[in-house]
Structure formats: structure tokens, C-alpha cells
């Protein structure tokens, strides 16, 4: 099972994501904005990062950019959790180095399916 970093400023979304993933046996670390996520990422080797786009302090896109600049996170899958159906946000995320996205709303099964898809 994988070490996963879940980043969202919304405690309920983060809680739901973490709870679901832990239920599936993953080890989940939570962070409530991009800056805290980077701190966590430096301290641990995560195999997957799930991040909200809109967050205070440091948003998801800036966080992806920073993570990709770190050697340990060059190839690690990073999924954006986003409600934006607009392609621009997705493209912005992609340009920063995001692997893909999970469109909100998603239910626990969709989350697990996507995580499974990424972790292979």
C-alpha cells in the first residue's frame, strides 16, 4: 500500500479523502495548503500526491511546480482535485506538471479507482 499526501484546505474534503484512502490500507498524510504540503513532502517520500487547486497561502498549481523541481518528486504522480470543468485550469495544472485530475464531486469509489489507476 502506498504513502499518499492529501492536500486540501477544506477539512471535510481532506477528511473524506484521507478516510477513504486509509480505509483502503494506504498511509495518508494530510496538509491544508501547498506550503505545508511541501514541508511534508520534504520530510517523507510519498508515492502519490492528491491536491486541491484553490487553496490559501500556496495554491495547488504552485505546489505542483515546486514539487516537480524536487528530485524526489520528478516522476511521482500528482493528481489535482478540482471542480473546474474549464480546460484552462486543467491545462495550467498540467503545464505545472500535474499527472491528471479528479473532478469534484467524486465519491469514494471514484477516488479509489483513480488512485488505483495511477498507482498501477
Amino acid at each position: 500500500m502506498a504513502k499518499i499526501l492529501a492536500v486540501d484546505d477544506s477539512a471535510s474534503m481532506r477528511g473524506m479523502v484521507a478516510f477513504t484512502l486509509r480505509g483502503a490500507g494506504h498511509e495518508v498524510t494530510e496538509a491544508e495548503n501547498g506550503q505545508l504540503a511541501l514541508d511534508a513532502a520534504r520530510g517523507g517520500s510519498f508515492e502519490l500526491v492528491l491536491a486541491d487547486v484553490n487553496m490559501p497561502v500556496m495554491d495547488g498549481i504552485a505546489m505542483v511546480r515546486e514539487l516537480r523541481a524536487m528530485d524526489a518528486y520528478k516522476g511521482v504522480p500528482i493528481l489535482m482535485l478540482t471542480t473546474e470543468s474549464h480546460t484552462e485550469k486543467k491545462m495550467e495544472g498540467k503545464a505545472a506538471g500535474a499527472t491528471g485530475w479528479l473532478v469534484k464531486p467524486f465519491d469514494p469509489e471514484q477516488l479509489l479507482a483513480t488512485v488505483k489507476r495511477v498507482l498501477g
Partner: peptide, 17 residues
């Protein structure tokens, strides 16, 4: 941004829950 972010989070959460 603050206003947008709040609406955005509520929308996402409301739909999810």
C-alpha cells in the same frame, strides 16, 4: 480570490457530500 475560493470550496463539498 477569497470570495471565489469560498464559493468554490462550498460547491465542491456540497456536491461531494
Amino acid at each position: 480570490h477569497t470570495i471565489f475560493r469560498a464559493a468554490h470550496s462550498i460547491k465542491g463539498g456540497a456536491a461531494t457530500f
